[in-house]
Design a protein around this nucleic acid. Structure first.
Length: 133
RNA sequence: UCAGGUGGUCGGGCGACCGCGCCAGGUUUUCGAACCUGGGGAGGAAAGUCCGGGCUUCACGGAAACACGGUGCCGGCUAACGGCCGGCGAGGGCGACCUCAGGGAAAGUGCCACAGAAAGCAAACCGCCUCGGAUUUGAUUCGAGGUAAGGGUGAAAGGGUGGGGUAAGAGCCCACCGCGGCGCUGGUAACAGCGCUGGCAUUGUAAACCCCACCGGAAGCAAGACCAGGUAGGAACGACCGUCGAUCCCAGCUGCAAAGCUUUCGAGCCGCGCACGGGAUGCGGCAAGCCCCGUUUUCGGGCCGUCGUUCGGGUAGGUCGCAACGAGGCAGUUGGGUAACCACUGCCCCAGAUGAAUGGUCGCCUCCCCACAAUUCCCCGUUUCGGCGGAGAAGUUUAUGGGGGACAGAACCCGGCUUACAGACCGCCUGACCGG
């Protein structure tokens, strides 16, 4: 079983500074930890299911499916030194499991090959968009 | 059989593979843990967080009062409750049954739109009746008075219905009903029944203020305790206050006196100590600290006041609380009670996570819905009377395919309430129809 992300700061770091890739059934965020090359720790994984997914029962179900999914796909494919965050969507609950596996394999490949992009910076609420110079 | 009422139970089942966290025992151990075996692992509402408790901290002399909030027919049950049970009253339903914040309106204040002549000190718009006058008989009209039976307005017109009575009317009188008072009877009581009596006087509204009775100290497991870490027990300004300076003081009380007592001190406590050049600031010791520095420790050195305003920075990591012998659960042809509930007997120990375990995937079955085919029935056309074609209905049986199975996730723990909920099952009762 992969080690889990547990602190809020680790999740925020992956969201703000990590790479993002999305699929119909889920969203993947990945952050490469700043570690010396000779002491790289194993990959870690965390799960986020917000209220957008549904009530507590729906969120629990989405997170459980993501957890099994992570063991099946990230178990063999995860790279040491990375923090993976799987974000649940509404479709995570009803999408066939085989499709979810394909979704996750695709986004993991995107992240590993560098084709994923960092998150578009969001302006703080209440501020006007910055005008291009 | 149909329609309905009410109480209760359940909330998909089985299997395969792969997993999660907890407890107990065992083995290994590099003391971090790993592995094996066994046990148990979401709900009827775990939800909303609306009441009542346990528990914790704070406050507080017992207590009482004010304010504020809550409750509000009677009796019982309960640890307690705004809960439950049984009664009473009022309203609804043919009925089973359902609903009700259901104390006080002769303590006081307020309010009652619109319509209407008049709305709580009642009231004369139309009408009705009597008397008088005028005009031309019928009749019309003017004036004075009586009248709440009729019309009209309104949610409501100052008891209701009927009779007597009267110029017309009126509780003016009578009967019944309603209402108030008193008495008797039944009931623990709410209340009910009966009798006498009064005279219709007392409009409604208290989820309007209010009055009365009873209840309530506050905040909550991020309570609270311990440990680890930690740059910041932060900063600025102002006031008080202390130091330098300025300045001020070297005293007061008792006593004849000797003397004694009191008075000071920057900050936790204790002790010492000060007078002609001294003091207000001194010296020593002990103790505490989420403080800082040095060098890891022993240790050494430094630091520290109060109040107010403003501005920040960081954090919520671990263990305990906390997984339970408890207002505990299950069972009973047991006993008491109409019941809620209580007693007794037997058995059981029954989730404990913390980015948050209690599951994921697949197959079969089950229940419901839909489509299509076969099946049955009816209608139309045609016929060589065997059928054929078209259109429709039934949903019985069978097969195939597709879809659906609700509301919802423990977070310190109990007792309730409220709200959400596909569907299934059981008991009792009511009404209608049919049969005996």
């Amino acid at each position: 079983m992969l080690p889990r992300l547990k602190k809020r700061g680790e999740f925020v770091r992956a969201t703000n500074s990590g790479l993002h890739a999305s699929a119909p059934g889920l969203v993947l965020q990945a952050y490469k930890r700043d570690e010396p090359a000779d002491s790289v720790t194993p990959a870690r994984v965390g799960f986020t299911t917000s209220k957008k997914v549904g009530n507590a029962v729906a969120r629990n179900r989405a997170r459980r499916r993501l957890r099994v999914l992570a063991e099946a796909v990230l178990g063999p494919k995860a790279r040491p030194g990375l923090d993976y965050v799987l974000v649940g969507r509404t479709a995570t609950i009803d999408r066939p499991f085989a499709d979810l596996i394909l979704d996750l394999e695709r986004v993991v490949d995107q992240v590993h090959s560098g084709r994923a992009k960092p998150r578009r910076p969001r302006r703080p609420r209440g501020q006007a968009p910055a005008k291009p110079a």
